[in-house]
Design a protein around this nucleic acid. Structure first.
Lengths: 148, 148
DNA sequence: GTGTAATACTTGCGTTCGCAAGCTTTAATG
DNA sequence: CATTAAAGCTTGCGAACGCAAGTATTACAC
């Protein structure tokens, strides 16, 4: 009987909920950012010119374009991100990482790395963590937007 | 270099987003349920008298009690769930699975099992799926509410 | 070129959710 | 008992989100 896939999926959902709970708090209180906003900045950091269009961002964040538009608005006001247009294609409105945003995303990354390490600090060997990361990576293998 | 925990966490977030996208559609169109509603029913199915208080459900769903109250309302209208009170403690308002709810949750479970199997159908060995499930289970080891 | 389709973005609307406040009921303290 | 604390639930409010519709711009077909 092969209910292993089902068990795996359920465990995935539960693990993600736990991680999100653990991380959202500190991310908000320390950096003033929601988890989704942090991911948005990290995607920009990895992008070619540190900028992405709204639809590209939406795909990477598994969100709708309207959500990205609304997420970018307050981050533009606080100067983490700037709006850029493309001279070649007037439809495009890039979300570009500013210097302030670049600085912040570095700190955010450090926070996430520290919290991630804490998550596996007890009862986990390095090999187990690496193995889990590799297996999870295979689920999203075809997708774009690697943040590591 | 010990960025493995960070990579693992990022991959976990991405994998969950993909799974949620994949499952929400069919779950909604076939059974008329959101993923959270399906999880709620499955928690009730596993509970001692097939019923749980709202705060217990909230903990298991990683949601707030008010969210559970609001989730239960339409499901009560459609007869999947019934409200029960406790003669010993008048504060308690159980969410109890009805016969219709029990029938539906069985079908929902089959759908989820089938979709889960599809998720790993290509490029995954049984051992790899089982290994991933086991590792993910360790993240939420201390929590209550096992759905398998 | 001209008309049609496709793409990128934004906005209105409804839904879902958490937080804080409030109500009711039970537990604990003296 | 009486009083205070705690627990469970609900409601008001605001924030975040997706969908559908609308606008503007580019690409394609002929």
């Amino acid at each position: 009987m092969s209910k292993a896939p089902f068990t795996t999926v359920i465990n995935l959902l539960r693990a993600q909920a736990l991680v999100q709970d653990r991380f959202s708090g500190e991310l908000g209180s320390v950096h003033g950012l929601a988890l989704n906003e942090a991911l948005l900045l990290m995607h920009l950091e990895k992008a070619p010119l540190r900028r992405l269009t709204r639809v590209d961002l939406a795909k990477r964040l598994h969100a709708s374009p309207s959500t990205v538009t609304r997420m970018a608005m307050p981050m533009e006001k606080t100067g983490l991100v700037a709006r850029q247009s493309d001279p070649r294609d007037a439809r495009l409105a890039y979300v570009a990482l500013t210097e302030a945003g670049l600085t912040l995303v570095g700190e955010v990354r450090k926070t996430l790395e520290r919290r991630s390490a804490e998550l596996f600090r007890d009862r986990w060997s390095d090999a187990e963590v690496a193995s889990l990361g590799k297996l999870l990576g295979r689920i999203t293998a075809g997708e774009l937007g690697d943040l590591t």
